[in-house]
């Protein structure tokens, strides 16, 4: 089977700026759970945008599940992201004007493929996922997202990323707004559920301490030094 992610001679720079991120090789297998470590400003979120098909590399290839992202049109990349990727941000993951259940179901809203994998309107699966992620689903169904704690919000976001069984979950510092106890709990349920669904997980964080929980640790600085075209160029 094709790897979940295959990066090859990737070079990216923000518009009008010198190349900032350069990665020679990075492969992540299906179902593999990888800890991607990088200091603040190292380019983790940038890489998230590249894998998600929102940013375009200057050169090199990004293959997600065997699909070369550069070969797709913008519209097709959006569809691909909707169909195969689940994303969890550091915070503000939820739309304040939707209920908890609607926020989770949003994960399948733009993807007929993922919708087809869940039964009916997806409420059952949503409640089951919330339950599996350690939330009181019956209670959650009645709450507004603004009433949730940050820890609860992150789990709801995880449920959204997992709903409809996408093959690759991208988590961008999802625990950095959580205290230690909440962080460990969140990590437990996230790893458990991605293990269950068989999705590959790329967990981006600066926090070295979490690395042990994962199948593999990759250092962003190690796999690709920013191409220093001039001394001012790029990152820390």
């Amino acid at each position: 089977m094709t790897p979940a992610l295959d990066l090859d001679s990737l070079v990216f720079g923000w518009p009008g700026a010198p190349p900032f991120l350069a990665i020679d090789q990075l492969q992540i297998e299906r179902g593999e759970r990888v800890f991607l470590q990088g200091a603040s400003g190292a380019g983790k979120s940038t890489l998230l945008g590249l894998i998600g098909g929102i940013l375009q590399p200057q050169t090199g290839h990004i293959r997600v599940l065997g699909q070369d992202m550069s070969a797709l049109s913008g519209r097709a990349r959006d569809r691909f992201r909707a169909d195969h990727l689940g994303v969890i941000f550091q915070m503000f993951n939820l739309l304040p004007f939707l209920g908890v259940v609607e926020n989770v179901k949003l994960g399948c809203q733009f993807s007929p493929v993922r919708r087809a994998r869940i039964s009916g309107d997806g409420r059952e699966e949503t409640l089951a996922l919330l339950e599996a992620l350690g939330l009181d689903a019956a209670d959650m169904a009645k709450r507004r997202v603004g009433e949730l704690s940050v820890g609860q919000q992150q789990r709801v976001a995880a449920a959204r990323a997992l709903l409809g069984g996408p093959e690759l979950i991208l988590a961008d510092e999802p625990t950095s707004a959580l205290d230690a106890a909440n962080r460990d709990q969140f990590l437990d349920v996230l790893l458990e559920q991605t293990g269950k669904s068989g999705a590959a997980l790329i967990f981006m964080s600066h926090d070295e301490a979490l690395a042990d929980r994962f199948d593999r640790r990759v250092g962003l600085e190690a796999i690709g030094k920013p191409a220093r075209v001039n001394p001012q160029g790029g990152a820390t």
């Binding site: 959006d78 994303v87 739309l95 733009f110 959204r160």
Partner: peptide, 11 residues
């Protein structure tokens, strides 16, 4: 809001 919608696949 826009970032979240983008993440779930909105163009």
């Amino acid at each position: 809001e826009v970032a979240v919608l983008r993440a779930v696949g909105a163009g």
